[in-house]
């Protein structure tokens, strides 16, 4: 099976300096934030790869880089074998035709002034292809009715809007869909509808998902392979069952322990220590060391390399 998406040493820096006048007056240096730090991964065709992490982990930025909405600072982003960072704009656009995206907030991702029909058909209409009946067909495919095509987004609930977003994403027959927290704005009962729909579509159409989420339960349900991000770096990557059965990185272990569970009545555990550090001045060495129970002097000074343990890739000096 060939890889749909391949990232090699992907890095993205954001300039978070104050305006130049402030820098001159207050004698501040330029400040950069490394949102994505040397991330390499492969997503095989017709699989679901999930990126999990907390806020500031860079998971959304990676999704947007692959979608071409944010440029990469360095590294390689291959979509169906074409590097969209180094190649010309036209070839990159051609490669991205196979790629669509579903966004987190179903209220912000549909233009409130457009009819549903026009929203769904837009990706096709923009290439000058006829779109008769396309929106109606797709609406039925995502579980809405063809009559909804003439309505405006505000007439729909959050879950229905997310179905419309999915319909739009499917309109141009993509092979890859980037799902950026597609259900975090939805209620649980509606979330399950949308997740089921996404699973069904994946099987019917042979789609590949890059699934971005902070919710471990959702990721566990959807993903084939999971990458855990901390401060922009991929700290652990493994097949789903492997990761949940045997998390290697202390950060992954902490995430699993901290997640609220339905069977944990009155659970009395020591909550994890500390918070995510400032990404502009991350701690030296392994970024996780100030919160890590295993941290040694090595961790405080040397950035760990990615190591392979069985099916797991982990970025920790002490994992075994």
């Amino acid at each position: 099976m060939s890889a749909s998406i391949r990232l090699k040493s992907l890095t993205r820096d954001f300039d978070v300096s104050k305006p130049w006048l402030n820098r001159v007056i207050e004698r501040l240096p330029r400040a950069t934030l490394r949102a994505v730090d040397d991330v390499s991964l492969e997503i095989p065709e017709n699989s679901v790869y999930a990126l999990v992490g907390e806020s500031g982990s860079g998971k959304s930025t990676i999704g947007r880089i692959v979608a071409g909405l944010v440029p990469a600072s360095s590294g390689v982003v291959e979509v169906n074998g074409i590097d969209i960072v180094s190649t010309g704009a036209e070839q990159a656009a051609e490669a991205r035709r196979n790629l669509q995206m579903i966004f987190q907030d179903p209220y912000a991702s549909l233009n409130p002034r457009w009819k549903v029909r026009d929203i769904i058909a837009e990706p096709v209409a923009i290439r000058g292809v006829a779109t008769d009946g396309l929106a109606e067909r797709l609406l039925e495919q995502v579980g809405l009715s063809a009559a909804d095509a003439g309505k405006f987004p505000h007439e729909f609930s959050g879950g229905q809007r997310q179905r419309i977003c999915i319909a739009r994403a499917l309109a141009s027959h993509p092979r890859i869909i980037i799902c950026d927290e597609p259900t975090s704005a939805l209620d649980v009962s509606v979330q399950s509808q949308v997740l089921n729909l996404m699973s069904d579509l994946r099987e019917e159409m042979g789609l590949t998902y890059l699934f971005i989420s902070h919710d471990l339960t959702v990721v566990q349900h959807m993903a084939d392979r999971i990458g855990v991000l901390y401060l922009g770096a991929l700290v652990e990557e493994a097949p789903r069952d492997r990761l949940f059965a045997e998390p290697k990185h202390p950060y992954t272990q902490m995430l699993f322990a901290a997640a609220p569970r339905m069977d944990a009545f009155g659970r009395e555990v020591e909550p994890p220590k500390g918070e995510i550090p400032d990404a502009i001045n991350p701690p030296p060495g392994c970024h996780y060391h100030p919160r890590c129970p295993l941290a040694t002097d090595l961790c405080r000074s040397v950035v760990p390399e990615t190591r392979r343990i069985g099916a797991t890739r982990v970025r920790c000096h002490h994992a075994e």
Partner: peptide, 10 residues
């Protein structure tokens, strides 16, 4: 975030 949420609940 999840880790901080656990702290606040505790």
């Amino acid at each position: 975030d999840v880790s901080v949420q656990a702290q606040i609940i505790a």
